[in-house]
Nucleic acid binder design. Structure first.
Lengths: 336, 336
DNA sequence: TTGTATGCGTTATCAC
DNA sequence: GTGATAACGCATACAA
């Protein structure tokens, strides 16, 4: 059995409250007794029971990272950075994977409601569900959103400015001389995907060009969807010169399909993908990508969450980070 | 404020213990009262406080996944599978990243000792530290090791049979006609790396061939280390025909270096790498790899942990899973 | 079947 | 500076 605070009190011949104060570096305990208590605790390898502590203090020093999916390297990267930041502040991180299942999300939300965690950061996923919305209305639930939008209600959020990201990507392709640019994005009832699309439109508009709707493909977010999208396009009579893929997994599938079809990048098709990870940098040819600011997304979101928990801020804050366009071979025109 | 069990008892006009029983589906509560209680709980969105529950029942339904590093996709994959298995059993998972820092590992160990988690699975990392050893001697700490070895003491473990994995890899290369096979592994004071090396030796021995020590390179586990290893080899006068890289990151670096040097795989050098992930399957050419049984590593380790927690087993069990050799283009000899 | 009482390990509020 | 003592929210042994 672990040694408890009560045991230490008994050994030291003092009251539990004194031990508690000494161990927590609170004032009101003589230097001599403090030292004695610390020594006993050390010798007996005392570990405060976090449950009891959390119960009494109404604070667990745990937060939940609720992921919409664990497939994309980008999300993992964000979690990694949250974990790092959390560790610095002595917070533990509970990993939750909803797989885009609202029921699961709902159940993870109860971590907050049952006071098991002090706060939660939701990473990715569709428009906020009613559960989330409802939870956030209770002042006690501290929630931060990463790369996730809400319609009616403001959450403290850290977002990627996908619109300007795509805008830059399109312009880059324009500069390379490409005009027939196919855009592979997600279903546009998803606000984030709609935002990406807006960047596409805006770029064409600003260049005085007209968008041809046929060049926009809405697909699921998966490797296979990216692969299939290319096949479908090849079966049509549009012959794009370039592709922009707005998500990590579809980017991979798209590139696979192009290569599998015996085509060359960028000679036959230029490609701008999404996500700066091992894969996109190593694949042949190295891919021009929009690089998600994963590090800052992680750090910032945790920072916001801590401020919410500590009640240093009241109104929701929103920070928007711009993805960086990392230009590699896949989008460089040979006619340039 | 969240509604508590006491509140429900008051509303229902019964004792707290009755409410507790009803809510936990325990016997000894009338059907009528049970229904009434359940209804009240439902209406008020009651969430049991997990801290209080854990404190009283000495069980938190949380486990820790302690990762030696979060860089390798394989480890992430294992965590993902643990999370999945855990969710099925209604366990939460705390994510801990030690970055191979023993001090951090030690601090995460206190999660166990402070009863914040019911058990922990340690994924990867060097020989078990004394802290781990000590912790495991206390019967109360339920620990499972994944891909990690211990010298003196048996832990419940799920291991990858690296030795036979490498053995098979070497034999595969033999069959392809390669004899000068360079082996890039980790420092061999790490038992797992030593085990991998043993597979290399064994394969040569069984084939009646002699191992040339110069062909074995011990490096760090990183992309850069793999890259540098190739450069170093090119600067020597050994001209290997094939490479076996025993870790994910070095595999990637190695392939990069080969391509960067203007060489072709497998024409100039055959390659067998480690880790079946997006990258190794998509890279050009697709890599022959030893595929880590990540799914089973995850499932099995959680399964073991649960049995330890539930005290269904007493003595440590060890399960050894064999990595699968996935043969792709990178190791197929053109002279075959 | 139901209620009472106690304990889980800590923090916090009082007195002294 | 220190010590009782009451919470925190729930589970459980025992009594009724």
């Amino acid at each position: 059995m672990q040694i408890t605070l009560k045991d230490i009190a008994r050994i030291a011949g003092v009251a539990e409250s004194t031990v508690s104060r000494a161990l927590n570096n609170k004032e009101g305990v003589g230097e001599e007794t403090r030292l004695k208590i610390l020594k006993i605790a050390e010798e007996n390898n005392y570990r405060p029971n976090q449950l009891a502590r959390g119960l009494a203090a109404k604070k667990t020093n745990m937060i939940a990272a609720v992921l919409s999916e664990m497939e994309s390297p980008g999300n993992i990267e964000i979690v990694k950075n949250i974990e790092e930041a959390a560790e610095d502040e002595n917070y533990q991180l509970i990993l939750c994977n909803t797989k885009n299942d609202l029921e699961k999300e709902k159940s993870y939300l109860s971590l907050l409601e049952s006071n098991q965690v002090d706060g939660a950061v939701f990473i990715g996923g569709g428009l906020v569900s009613s559960h989330l919305l409802r939870a956030s209305f209770s002042e006690e639930n501290d929630i931060v959103l990463v790369n996730r939008l809400s319609e009616e209600h403001f959450f403290t959020s850290v977002l990627t400015d996908y619109s300007s990201g795509i805008y830059n990507a399109v312009n880059h392709l324009f500069e390379q001389g490409y005009r027939k640019i196919s855009f592979i994005c997600g279903k546009r009832d998803n606000m984030i995907e709609e935002e990406k699309a807006s960047g596409y439109y805006r770029a064409f508009q600003d260049a005085g060009l007209e968008v041809k709707e046929e060049y926009i493909f809405e697909t699921e977010s998966s490797r296979k969807a990216g692969y299939d999208a290319f096949l479908e396009i090849m079966n049509s009579d549009l012959m794009p010169e370039a592709f922009i893929s707005s998500r990590e997994l579809t980017t991979i599938g798209l590139v696979e399909a192009i290569k599998m079809g015996g085509y060359f990048i960028p000679d036959d098709f230029a490609v701008v993908g999404y996500g700066d990870n091992l894969l996109t940098s190593i694949i042949e040819p190295p891919l021009t990508v929009l690089s998600e600011p994963a590090k800052d997304l992680g750090k910032k979101s945790f920072e916001f969450l801590i401020k919410l928990i500590n009640e240093e801020v009241k109104e929701p804050k929103i920070e928007v980070l711009t993805p960086e366009l990392i230009i590699r071979e896949s989008s460089i025109s040979k006619y340039n």
